[in-house]
Write a protein that binds this DNA or RNA. Structure first.
Length: 412
DNA sequence: TCTGGGGTCCTAGGACCC
DNA sequence: TCTGGGGTCCTAGGACCC
């Protein structure tokens, strides 16, 4: 009997190096481009570091650190705001380059992409490492951005390998690290549990209570024990993770599940008028964004962060999907009132989100709702107004048209 | 040090239905 | 009168990621 050929998957993760810093430099070559001690992030008193140049990282500056703290560590650093539009644009460019190598490209975040090259062995006639190196060169040439690439038989291994590639890039290594099939367990076995994706601070604490800090520590326990300690699902998940086992597919088309905007205020807000005005602004933005992306939504959620950093939220689900400003704005105001009734204190942040999204161009899903339209919460009139607003905003940019209530400073 | 903005996924309880 | 079992949906909160 001939031995069956075992075909393993060939998955890469391409992760841009210091993405925001690199783009800030491309956008402003004479300013940020010439500043070694560069931090990208919010510069106001409540900002945090989005990304720090390698030079500032040497001072201990890290992502998500309050910029005030970062400046204490590295007083000479220069802070520039996040160039959001340019970042989205560059992200799309990287994705396009990757799609020339395989149609199965899944964006994992703005600067990370999984690429499934399974089945391309005969087409490329080269090692996975060689393909990865060619991809790196192509991305650099087309986008002027450097990426590190990790590769292996699963998403998990590719992700961890990319981290390894970044660590080695400090030396003179090529920015590519591939874990060969069969080498997974040994590769993962060298790591700390904290390095495994989805093992965050809270889970690390629980693991530490059982004396586990490294993957090696955890490998000593069998499934039953892990399931008993952390629950069936989590225990089983952990058992597989620390052995490098991950069967999750790379998916080229994932639809977004929610759209949101939030804002932390320079100073906490206490007046209802101010809060109402902000929630209106956010809701209008979210609704316009949602329509531009071609969605309707059934659920609206308002989030509030109190002065003491307590975060609360309230949501409402419509019987049918909506897309116009009016139902979304009215619901957001109602939910804000509900949150304020439960606790009336200063607010440092407000957010508005829509979820349970339905594609406007998906007749199969829409027909379902169109039939039961007697109690429709959204009228044709609402939709007509929304279309007009979108038209004007396209012509004159966002803010081309503003509500009278927004200019007056809030209603209700 | 005093904590952004954009997301995803999971859990758990209650309502409701069969 | 003391009481089921399962499925789905909604809501709120929380962990985690970049």
């Amino acid at each position: 009997m001939p031995t069956r050929q075992v075909t393993h998957r060939r998955i890469l993760l391409a992760d841009a190096d210091a993405f925001y810093v690199a783009i800030a430099r491309l956008v402003d070559p004479d300013g940020a481009g010439k500043e070694p001690l560069l931090i990208v992030g919010g510069s106001s008193k409540r900002g945090v570091v989005t990304s720090a140049s390698y030079e500032t990282r040497r001072y201990g500056v890290r992502s998500a650190m309050p910029t005030a703290h970062a400046l204490r560590l590295c007083p000479k650093a220069v802070i520039v705001p996040v160039p959001r539009e340019a970042c989205s644009q560059k992200s799309r460019e990287i994705r396009k380059v990757l799609q020339r190598f395989s149609p199965v490209v899944e964006p994992a975040s703005i600067d990370e992409f999984y690429v499934d090259l399974t089945g391309t062995e005969r087409l490329y006639r080269e090692s996975l490492a060689a393909t990865a190196a060619r991809i790196r060169a192509r991305v650099l040439e087309s986008t002027k951005l450097s990426v590190s690439i990790g590769g292996g038989t699963s998403r998990l291994i590719a992700k961890l390998a990319a981290e390894e590639a970044k660590r080695r890039r400090a030396g003179d290594e090529p920015g590519v690290h591939i874990v060969p099939p069969g080498g997974e367990e040994e590769f993962v076995g060298r790591l700390d549990l904290a390095q495994i994706p989805m093992i965050g601070p809270k889970f690390q604490e629980r693991l530490a209570r059982y004396g586990m800090r490294t993957v090696r520590d955890a490998l000593r326990h069998d499934v039953g024990v892990l399931e008993e300690w952390f629950g069936k699902r989590t225990g089983h998940w952990l058992y597989n993770r620390i052995r490098g086992i991950d069967t999750g597919p790379v998916e080229a088309r994932i639809r977004s599940k929610s759209i949101s905007h939030e804002e932390t205020f320079f100073d906490d807000l206490t007046e209802d008028d101010d809060l109402n005005r902000e929630v209106l602004r956010l809701a209008v933005r979210v609704a316009a964004d949602m329509r531009r992306k071609g969605f309707l939504a059934r659920t609206v959620t308002v989030k509030i962060r109190d002065g003491d950093f307590t975060t609360r939220q309230a949501g409402y689900t419509f019987p049918q999907p909506v897309s116009a400003d009016r139902p979304i704005v009215e619901t957001a105001h109602r939910l804000l009132r509900k949150l304020r009734r439960a606790r009336r204190t200063s607010a440092r942040l407000l957010g508005v989100a829509v979820s349970q999204l339905i594609e406007a161009r998906d007749p199969s899903q829409l027909a379902l709702f169109e039939e039961s339209s007697e109690g429709d919460l959204e009228t044709d009139h609402d939709r007509t107004i929304a279309r007009m607003v979108d038209g004007i905003n396209v012509k004159f940019g966002r803010g081309g048209l503003r509500r009278a209530s927004e200019l007056r400073g809030g209603e209700r």
